[in-house]
Structure formats: structure tokens, C-alpha cells
Amino acid sequence: MKIRSSYRAGGLSALLIVVGTSVLVGATVSAQAETRDKWCKGVHLRFFVGGAEGDSFGTIVYNGAKQAERDLGPSVDYIFSGWDVEKMTQQLREAIAVKPDGIAMMGHPGDAALMPLAEEAAGAGIKMMYQNVPVPKVIARFGGGYIGAQVAQLGRALGAEVVKRAGLKAGDVAFMQGPFENENRGARERGTVAAMEQAGVQVIKINSQPGWAADPNLALPVITAALAKYPEVKAVGYGGGQMLGNVPAFMQAAGKKPGEIFNFGVDTSPQVVEGFKGGWIQLAADQQPFMQGYLPILSLCQQAVYRFTPISVDTGAGFVTPDNYGEIAKLAAGGVR
């Protein structure tokens, strides 16, 4: 076998001339022998689902993670937090103490809260991935990948889409509910408000209260009181799939009819699909939570077994509307969308 190499300015160009087909055939056979099922078997991971067991968004994330576990073969411990950022932080501290091979962590606590724990994980040799809410400062300092929508960009895109589809104009009034005080997680809702205010819409913020994400019915008194105080409101936005899926209950409690108010938010689920079907919901930004479950486990397995670098994927997929929700209805019923 002869190998000839040539060099050019600006880079290296290698020309390989292989004499004899047996070398190529042997290489092909060898490569095929390396492929195997359950190639991540023996790797121990901890995965943060984010919500409580059975909630609409968390269930889809969980389904994605379970599918990856079945496909790849790692041992995975699932952590449920009820969307409580303080609980998530404590659970991450406990997860690091167990010293698994890798942890897939929801980014809701934010850069400041997660930074010291990310440092501790790095010191212990634990691989980290983050999902749903980006933590760019943590990743820049201690590594890891991010699977989820770029929330600030998604929020702005959603606000602009609401203005267009709802026909809002300067002086119109809208509500936006969300965790505005959370530096990282609240970037999405702040982006939506900024885009709507840029169009001259008066946006009244409804700051999320503890427990709303886990049990949206806790928000009923606040939402209905706000609608009673501002009868001129034309659009209401919700900061997550749990809240968006509860729109029929909010509107019925306030004495509103389907389509009377333009209701919008983020995420799809069986409940959100039913909201579209009943005419209660007019727009949802889809961030594909199934991928936020599957891909972090895939990346942790790749890092642990093959020493690959972490992967990062923007899962923002566009918008679900009354015109296209039927395309994902069956997938939503199956816990995939």
C-alpha cells in the first residue's frame, strides 16, 4: 500500500492511494462489527424532568427520555421537581453527591444558582447537559450542551406573531403571564412583552406564583380578577404548557366564549390540542419537549462511551395554529408532541 500526501497553503490536503481491495473490504467489515445495540449499557445517569409526575409538558419530556433509555441502554434515575426552582437546585446537589456518570438538568434555576454546582460536578468528573432553559454562562465556564429553544428569541417571535394574527394595534391591551423575575427562565416572556410593546400594545404583566405551573387552577382567581378589571383586553398569553392547557377553565370562569379573547402561549399537549379544537386557543409556539428528553440522554451517552463533545440543539419548531393543530393531534395524544 502506498500513501502519497500533498500540502497546500491554508490547509492540509491528503491524497490516499490504496492498492488492493482487501484493505477496503476489511475496513468495512471492521466498522460493521463496531455497531451494537444498547451501546450505553452500564452508564448511570440522572435526568431532571422538571415538572411533577403526570403533568402535560413534563410527561412529554419524560417520554422522550424513556425512549432514549430504551434505545441506548443506560441506567437512568428520573427526578421530578414540580417546576420548583429551589427544589431543583437542592435535587441537583443531591444528584452530584451520588456521582453518576452524567446529569441532564433543567436550566430553570439560572446561571447564578447553578454555577457553583456545575463547578462541583466538573470537579467530580460528572458530564452535564441542560434542557428547556439555557444557561450560557454555566456552559461557557464548565462545559455541557443545551437542548431546547433559545427562549429569548422564541419569546420575541411569539410576540410578533401574536400582533399579526390577533390584529393588535397601538393602544390595544393584552396580558402576559410568566416568571418575569427569573433571570434565565423569564427571558421568554420578557421577549414576548418587548415585541408586543414595540407594536404599541399595552401589556399588563401577571407574574407567576409558586405552584401555578404544577397546578394551573391556583391561578384562576388572579386570571379572572384581571379579566374583570380590564374588560377591554384582547389577548392573553401564558408562560407554559400547563397554563395554556388550562385556558378553557380560565375563560369559562371569567364568563368568556371561545374566540372572544385571543389566547396564546408555548407548548403543545393533549390539553392544548383540545383547546385548539374547542376554539379556546389561537396560537402556541412549539418547542418539541420530546427532543428535550431524548437528546440530553443521547449526548450524555456519547460523551461517556465515545468521548464525543456535548451536543446543542435549538428545538424551537415554529407555531401551532387553528389551521395546523390537526397535524400533531395524534402525536400529542400519544405523548410525543
Rank of each mutant, 00 (worst) to 15 (best):
R4H: 08
W39S: 11
Y306W: 11
G178N: 09
R46H: 10
Y230C: 03
V336Q: 08
K256E: 01
V247S: 07
L45H: 07
L331R: 14
R8K: 11
M251H: 15
A27M: 13
A285F: 15
G255N: 14
E189W: 08
N263P: 00
G110S: 07
M1N: 12
A121T: 07
L244D: 03
R307I: 00
E119T: 05
M88L: 08
D77G: 03
P248T: 06
G241Q: 11
G259W: 09
V193K: 15
F47L: 10
A235C: 05
V138H: 06
K66V: 15
M243C: 06
E69I: 08
G259F: 14
L72A: 03
Q91V: 04
M291G: 09
G167N: 02
I126P: 10
I261F: 00
K2Y: 10
N63K: 04
W83E: 04
A157H: 00
G107I: 08
Q271Y: 00
Q303E: 14
G54E: 05
K169E: 02
N263K: 00
G245M: 11
L24H: 13
V266T: 12
G123V: 09
Y78W: 04
K256R: 13
V203W: 03
L12Y: 12
D215S: 13
P289T: 15
T321D: 07
Q242C: 04
A249M: 09
V247Y: 06
E181C: 01
M106N: 07
A124H: 07
Y306G: 02
G145V: 12
L168S: 02
E260K: 07
A104C: 04
A9M: 03
F57M: 06
Y62N: 03
T59Q: 05
Y294C: 11
A160S: 12
Q282P: 13
V19M: 09
S5F: 15
P109H: 14
A213R: 01
K205Y: 07
N63P: 12
M196A: 05
R156K: 10
L331N: 12
K137D: 08
G245F: 01
G237R: 04
V203R: 01
A160M: 01
G159M: 06
F264S: 06
Q252N: 12
P248R: 00
D267S: 06
R190G: 05
Y230V: 15
I281N: 10
A33G: 00
A194D: 13
P179A: 15
R190F: 00
A112S: 12
L218C: 03
G110W: 04
G245L: 07
V138G: 05
Y78N: 11
A199W: 05
Q90Y: 08
K277C: 03
Y294I: 08
I3S: 05
G318A: 04
L154E: 15
V151H: 01
Y146H: 13
V19G: 01
G148K: 13
V201W: 12
L45S: 02
M88S: 14
V98Y: 03
F175Q: 07
W280G: 02
P136V: 15
G102L: 11
V247K: 07
T59V: 02
G51Q: 01
M251T: 03
S6K: 14
F250A: 08
P296M: 12
N217I: 05
K66Q: 11
A284V: 13
A284Y: 14
V18M: 14
A166L: 11
D267V: 11
N263M: 04
D314P: 13
Y230I: 09
A68V: 13
G335M: 02
G259S: 09
G335K: 00
W212A: 09
I126W: 04
G123Q: 08
L16D: 02
